[in-house]
């Protein structure tokens, strides 16, 4: 059986890179005596895949990991069992059984499903953006100006070259408080018709800072189009003509979505059955 696990990554664990997170989960499943399915051969490994690997330095409420199991108990029990052997900074919040693949149906990895993601990008204490921005209102005003340009062209570096790209179409949402974010998000996301256990009931683990300057963003994510929040912030600094400070912003991922083929709306990865 295939299970999609949703988890949070926070605190000092933001310094653990993706490959190490994978190794971490393999060991955690063993500690919790999860009946994982192993690949065949002399070096068997647990069958697992991650939806959208998180970069070093980022935290998240919405990470997804698909695993293949031979057997398991009820979701609540499994979540509890695994959380009991996890270290601070990793916390499982969701456990959804995926539908078995029908015959002739192509296998879809979680990674291939991903189309966009929500982020909360916060200014860390001890940093400021140039001289003029002193408050969240100042910041919102400037960011709105930036966001409402006709196009936002950046030089996107690829492995071999650098080319100008308009990132504006890749930003589908910008909001400056939680209520605004939720309203805007709900207009883009398919209404939750699924009352699966998973629903992220736990508190967000995003860090908050005294300066109170932050922005919610929804960005294209995945293999078709991918925009990192850091690139948006860099473009914003360019717009302000202020030198970009790489370490000034804490990026926190809130959710990862796929695009529902019928409605064209977004659905969180734990709201789909495959």
């Amino acid at each position: 059986m295939n299970v999609r696990i949703k988890f949070q990554k926070y605190g000092v664990m933001k310094f653990i890179g993706h490959l190490d997170v994978m190794r971490y989960f393999q060991k955690a499943f063993r500690r919790a005596n999860v009946d994982n399915e192993y690949s065949k051969g002399f070096n068997p490994h647990q069958i697992m895949s991650f939806a959208a690997p998180l970069g070093v330095g980022l935290t998240s409420d919405g990470e997804y990991l698909d695993v293949s199991l031979n057997s398991c108990e009820a979701p609540e029990i499994m979540i509890e069992r695994i959380n009991a052997v996890m270290s601070e900074g990793f916390h499982i919040t969701g456990w959804n059984f995926l539908k078995d693949r029908e015959e002739n149906q192509k296998a879809v990895t979680a990674m291939a499903l991903v189309s966009s993601a929500d982020y909360l990008v916060s200014l860390k204490d001890g940093y400021q953006i140039g001289e003029a921005i002193r408050s969240q209102q100042d910041f919102a005003k400037e960011f709105e100006r930036f966001y409402h340009q006709d196009e936002i062209v950046i030089n996107k570096k690829t492995k071999t070259s650098e080319k100008p790209v308009d990132i504006k179409p890749m930003i589908s949402l910008a909001a400056f408080d939680k209520a605004e974010y939720e309203v805007k998000r709900n207009s883009l996301v398919k209404v939750d018709n699924n009352t699966m256990l998973s629903g992220n009931k736990s508190e967000s683990v995003a860090e908050s800072y005294e300066n109170g300057i932050f922005v919610y963003l929804q960005l294209d994510t995945g293999s078709a189009a991918n925009l990192k929040p850091e690139l948006v912030m860099e473009a914003f600094y360019d717009f302000l003509s202020v030198p970009y400070e790489k370490f000034a912003w804490q990026v926190h991922r809130l959710e990862v979505y796929t695009t529902d083929t019928e409605s064209g709306k977004l659905a969180a990865l734990d709201q789909v059955e495959r």
Partner: peptide
């Protein structure tokens, strides 16, 4: 939440920050 001796800026600059954060299982 555990506080670290080194700032984010330092940890994100050096190779393998996990060397300095502790918090390992057990």
């Amino acid at each position: 939440m555990r506080k670290l001796a080194l700032s984010d800026e330092i940890l994100l600059t050096v190779e393998k920050p996990a060397r300095y954060i502790g918090g390992e299982v057990n």
